[in-house]
Design a binder for these strands. Sequence first.
DNA 1: CACCATTTTAGCACTTGGTACTAATATCAG
DNA 2: CTGATATTAGTACCAAGTGCTAAAATGGTG
Lengths: 188, 188
Amino acid sequence: MKYTKRDRQQLLLETLEKNPFITDEQLASTFNVSVQTIRLDRMELSIPELRERIKSVAAHNFGEEVKSLPLNEVIGEIIDIDLDKQAISILDITQDHVFARNGIARGHHLFAQANSLAVAVINDELALTRKSTITFVKPVKAGDRVIAKAVVLSSDTEKNSTLIEVTSKVENDTVFIGQFSMYRVTKS
Amino acid sequence: MKYTKRDRQQLLLETLEKNPFITDEQLASTFNVSVQTIRLDRMELSIPELRERIKSVAAHNFGEEVKSLPLNEVIGEIIDIDLDKQAISILDITQDHVFARNGIARGHHLFAQANSLAVAVINDELALTRKSTITFVKPVKAGDRVIAKAVVLSSDTEKNSTLIEVTSKVENDTVFIGQFSMYRVTKS
DNA sequence: CACCATTTTAGCACTTGGTACTAATATCAG
DNA sequence: CTGATATTAGTACCAAGTGCTAAAATGGTG
């Protein structure tokens, strides 16, 4: 048996919530009604057509690529790098990085920026963090621009070990300090 | 004067890179050529039509909300918690967490799991990480299930300070150890 | 049962932003 | 001047719609 109008429209909403990439025709066949009925439903619920739905999904997420932490990339934008010596990256703190309650940035974002910068500055096939000591000097708030500077302190070729210090600042105020002991695999 | 074909096509690429939401007609008028020329250019550069471009932007960003690190939540799933005493969370390492080259998990994910667990175990309005020392004992690979256990070592009410140790294991092998010195704001 | 309202279908013209293809012009280089 | 390359024009067609009109099905209610 077909659904009632009310039920169908409810389901329609849920269906499109889950998958906005679906045509009226496909909807019609899944609900066993005509395309026109679907159109009427969309009108009543003021759901836009497929193309507009897609456009809004795209527009919504466009330019917001930074919103989600790009797991495989460097966190923050590297603006200067001198391999095996030093590197600088910038991370703009948004609402997404902070505790909702007080607007203070979660520690792991600062760590992620510093750690990935430490990895980036090493001119090698691969660098792994072995050990690190970090200090959160001052809270960072949404809207702050964190500038992290990584400096290679020493490199022990014997032990495949490199010591890096990363200092992060917001408007010249140090907010984070981290020492990273990195393990490196020399280029073949 | 109009651009040469080569220049125009180069600019076309850049333009669409910046803004994929633009029709051939608009492109034609910005480059002072006919719509057909734009179409030919797109063919030669194998750039898909507007709708396909939008669709790919939308598809790209749809469903990836979970794939990326949920910035505002606890990283990993808390399976046991005894406030102010200890807590345990699980994080399944996927391809998204690792270096593509060697499949070893990036340090900041382990840190994020441990750090957010340390925050969670504190039974307070707010907890901030003040200082931490961490050691990556053993590399973690894609497919591993990391079980982090946070234990509150001591609590200094005077200083609003709490010391927490987090030990992360994969199949009973310790992979990560971290000491976190947390600053806490007592509940009002 | 008959009647009216609601709901569902159907059909047609028109819109956008294209593709695919053909054919006519420009434009330039040797 | 002649070819080759580049550009423009024009046609038919498509997908996924909107907007509109009209017919049919369905459902209660007196």
